[in-house]
Design a binder for these strands. Structure first.
Lengths: 122, 122
DNA sequence: CCTGCTGTGTATATCTTACATATACAGTAT
DNA sequence: ATACTGTATATGTAAGATATACACAGCAGG
């Protein structure tokens, strides 16, 4: 559970923060296939949140194919080829980029100006 | 109220959608200084939402300096110099860009790759 | 002048739902 | 048996959205 942090004051739901961070870790390859995810209780305790909230995150991870569950044993990182990881990465990116870009457009921001902002702040 | 659309199924609050769209219109200059905004009731009826929801959006617009209210008369577009508009535009952009970029980073996306995506999808 | 109507924005009290929770339940090791 | 897994149920909380009633401005028409 190192490297994972959640904010209870954020407007973003805790379970979603968890999902995003862990799925990102898997996509980046920091979490290897078949390695064990912390148990729901352990994670809940360390992050000082409820068991249910962690479960909700784990559920979404499983539903999206990032992990698999063995009842009584725990949750494990799913086997994903590099190709599949790249695909999921692109899915996550595009699903957001679309709404992000439409907002910048609505403000009248030009493509080049946005790129300048990114060069400056990335 | 032309050009304004809200989605009741979106995860984003309706009042926030309204705020974003109208503030964008003001920043782009499509809504001129001192012109009358639709009354809360009119807007609510056209958009088929509650009066209160519209009021919440109008409140935020006023609080952020985009409009001013004359009780009994209505709400009007505030006087903003081009310089002030540019400033507000940049504020809106940066406040989002920060969180957007940190997400892309967490996925391991490189700056140049993000720029390529933008060139492709903007 | 008033008086009443119709327009404006405002305040209160209520409903709904997503998020988060505690607690009890069921299965699998060892 | 015990101690660990994940699961299900019933409950609390807070943000969002609502309906309805309120208060003030303007503008008739008497």
């Amino acid at each position: 559970m190192k490297n994972i942090q959640v904010s209870t004051t954020s407007k973003k739901p805790i379970y979603q923060q968890l999902f995003e961070q862990i799925s990102s870790n898997i996509i980046r390859g920091d979490l290897k296939t078949d390695s064990l995810l912390p148990s729901i209780r352990t994670a809940a305790k360390e992050l000082r949140i409820s068991v249910i909230t962690v479960k909700k995150a784990w559920e979404e991870l499983e539903q999206k194919g990032f992990i698999y569950t063995i009842p009584g044993k725990g949750c494990f990182i799913a086997k994903l080829t590099e190709h599949e990881k790249e695909k999921k990465k692109e899915e996550q990116i595009l699903s957001r980029l679309k709404t992000h870009l439409s907002y910048y457009k609505s403000l009248g921001l030009q493509k080049e100006d946005l790129i300048d902002y990114i060069k400056k702040y990335y």
